[in-house]
Amino acid sequence: MKINGNEIRPGNIIEHDGGLWVAVKTQHVKPGKGGAFAQVELKNLRDGRKLNERFRSADKVERVRLEQKDQQFLYENDGMLVFMDAETFEQIELPADLLGERRPFLQDGMTVVVEYHESEALNVTLPEKVVCTVADTEPVVKGQTAANSFKPAVLDNGVRIMVPPFVGVGEAVVVNTETMEYVERA
């Protein structure tokens, strides 16, 4: 599907320079002289390269829709994550660094969304909220009941987050995988 250069929005995936790119940021600029354009920060879906590009409204770009499939995480093998399609039972391998700092939130048997372009798997999206157990945190200090005082905690997967003072060791908490912040008690 072709769209104009000024219609690119963050999150859109476009075909550009022979690769697939996701728009990270877009900014519309109207200089005093010359025509208006969209300044778009792009990130390559295959190798993670970044690129700043200008698109005028007359420029046509090919917008790509990715097919999304639910896949179940099975195990990790030599830095590769193995996922299985719940319907066809086909298994695919993706590099673990695709998830970046969100990798510790991936749990055995978890259902994730894998995005495909034609038959190539490009991206993995974790569920928005994950339940984790607090492995270590400081004890509650009596009298420390300020409205929004948080204390550091280490989860069972090794991730450090800030939790409210009433959360103790061994408690299950819900964590947002996008912002890596405490949401609520589980």
Rank of each mutant, 00 (worst) to 15 (best):
V134Y: 04
E128K: 14
L74G: 04
P95Q: 04
G143V: 03
Q68K: 15
T111D: 08
R63E: 15
T177L: 04
V82R: 12
V159A: 05
P95M: 07
M180I: 15
V112E: 01
D70E: 14
M1D: 13
K43V: 12
E90Q: 14
Q27N: 15
V131E: 14
F166G: 07
F105D: 04
K50E: 15
H117G: 03
E181D: 12
P10G: 00
L74Q: 11
K50I: 08
G79I: 06
D70Y: 07
T145Q: 12
V163E: 01
Y75F: 15
N44M: 07
N4D: 08
E67D: 14
V24E: 11
L155F: 01
M180T: 11
G79N: 09
N52I: 10
Q107R: 14
V169D: 09
V112A: 05
R103P: 05
R185I: 09
F37A: 05
R46E: 13
R103L: 15
D70S: 13
D136I: 04
L155W: 00
V141P: 00
F150H: 05
D156W: 00
V134D: 07
E115N: 10
G79E: 09
V112D: 00
L155I: 02
T179S: 15
E184Y: 05
R9E: 15
V174C: 10
E87M: 08
D108Q: 13
R63V: 06
Q27K: 14
R49P: 02
E41I: 06
Q107I: 06
V167T: 06
T26Y: 02
V24K: 13
V130P: 08
L122T: 09
E120T: 12
T88L: 06
D78N: 14
E171A: 10
E101M: 08
V82H: 11
A96D: 14
L20E: 01
R103F: 09
I92F: 03
G168A: 12
D156L: 01
V24R: 13
V82A: 06
F83H: 08
E90P: 03
E67I: 10
Q71A: 12
D17H: 08
A36T: 09
Q68P: 05
R65S: 14
